[in-house]
C-alpha cells in the first residue's frame, strides 16, 4: 500500500506535507546520516529545489523539522538530506527504515547566489553540518564548471571522524581550478591534514576579493569569525553570503520563531547577504 493523499484543493494548505518514501539511508559519520527521499508516486514527483533551500520533514507522530537539502539540484526525482542526530525528531529521521514514509513540505527559503555570480570566483566556507546546505551549490558549480572562475572550498569540523563527504571532498580537489582544504579542531596522529579553526586556512589560499563571492554556513560563531577575516581581506559585505539557523516551526513566516531582529530566517533567508544579516548576527541573545 502506498500513501494516499487528498487531491490538492484550491485552498490546499502549505502546512500539509507530501508523502516521501525513504529510498536510502546512508551513514556519513558516527552521528550524521544522509537520507534519499522520493515520491511514492512516480506521476507526482517531489518538487525540485535551489541550492541552499530547505524542506520541512515530518516524522509520523513525532514532529516536524527544517532540514537543508544536500543533494544535487539537477538530479530530479529525489531529495537528499544530510541530518545530524541531535534530538528526538532528528533521531527519528536518521533511524527511519528504508521504504518508510515521512512527510515533506517545501522547498522553502532563499538560495545561494549562483546566477548572480556567474563568471566570478567562489569561496565556500563550511563548518560541521554546515557543509550540507552548501553541497548543492558545489554540485551546481562543478556541473557548470566553465560558468565560474576559481572555486575554493574551506571546510572545518570538530575532529576527523566528524568530517562529512570525505571522499567527495578529496575528489573535488582534483577538478581543474578547484581547491579544497579541510581542517579539524583536534586530530590524532593519523590525521595529517590541517588542525585549527577554519579561518587559519585563509593563509594557504589565494583569493581575489574583487572577483570572489563567499558563501558561508556553519556555527554562528564560526561564521562571524569568517566574516571578520573576509572583511579584513577586503571583501565587501555584499559579496559575502551566510546561511542562518533559527528555531522554525512553519517555514512560512507564521510561527514567529525564526526571527532575527527584522528578519524571518524562513522566508527572508536562510541565505542572506552579509550586509543584511550581519548586524543582527552580532547581537547577543537577539
Amino acid at each position: 500500500m502506498s500513501a494516499v493523499l487528498c487531491p490538492p484543493s484550491a485552498d490546499v494548505s502549505v502546512m500539509r506535507p507530501a508523502a516521501g518514501r525513504v529510498a536510502r539511508v546512508e551513514k556519513e559519520t558516527h552521528d550524521t546520516f544522509t537520507l534519499r527521499v522520493e515520491s511514492p508516486d512516480e506521476a507526482s514527483p517531489l518538487a525540485g529545489f535551489e541550492p541552499g533551500q530547505f524542506s520541512m520533514l515530518y516524522v509520523y507522530g513525532v514532529g516536524e523539522l527544517p532540514i537543508s537539502i544536500s543533494g544535487d539540484p539537477e538530479e530530479r526525482g529525489s531529495l537528499v538530506y544530510t541530518i545530524r542526530s541531535v534530538g528526538a525528531a532528528t533521531h527519528a529521521l536518521v533511524t527511519s527504515k528504508e521504504g518508510s514514509t515521512i512527510g515533506v513540505r517545501g522547498p522553502f527559503g532563499t538560495s545561494w547566489p549562483l546566477r548572480e555570480t556567474r563568471g566570478r570566483d567562489l569561496l565556500v566556507v563550511a563548518g560541521g553540518i554546515g557543509l550540507a546546505p552548501l553541497r548543492p551549490a558545489i554540485f551546481h558549480v562543478l556541473r557548470h564548471r566553465g560558468d565560474y572562475g576559481r572555486l575554493v572550498v574551506l571546510y572545518g569540523a570538530r575532529s576527523p571522524k566528524d568530517l562529512l563527504f570525505r571522499k567527495q571532498l578529496a575528489a573535488w580537489n582534483y577538478v581543474p581550478d578547484t581547491q579544497v582544504l579541510t581542517t579539524v579542531d583536534y586530530g590524532g596522529l593519523s590525521w595529517r591534514g590541517y588542525v585549527g579553526v577554519v579561518t587559519t586556512l585563509f593563509r594557504y589560499i589565494r583569493i581575489r576579493p574583487d572577483r570572489t563571492t563567499a558563501m558561508i554556513c556553519g556555527p554562528e560563531v564560526m561564521m562571524r569569525f569568517v566574516v571578520t577575516e573576509l572583511k579584513s581581506r577586503g571583501f565587501p559585505a555584499e559579496q559575502i553570503y551566510l546561511s542562518a539557523e533559527r528555531n522554525m516551526k512553519c517555514a512560512i513566516g507564521h510561527c514567529g520563531h525564526c526571527q532575527m531582529g527584522p528578519l524571518f530566517v524562513c522566508k527572508d533567508g536562510p541565505v542572506f547577504p552579509c550586509h543584511r544579516i550581519g548586524p543582527w548576527m552580532d547581537r547577543y541573545e537577539l
Partner: peptide
C-alpha cells in the same frame, strides 16, 4: 488541528480537516 494522519504500517494518509 492542522491535520491528522492515519497509518496502517509505514505509509500514512494525511487528512486535513476543511
Amino acid at each position: 488541528s492542522v491535520f491528522s494522519v492515519e497509518s496502517n504500517g509505514s505509509p500514512f494518509h494525511v487528512v486535513e480537516k476543511q
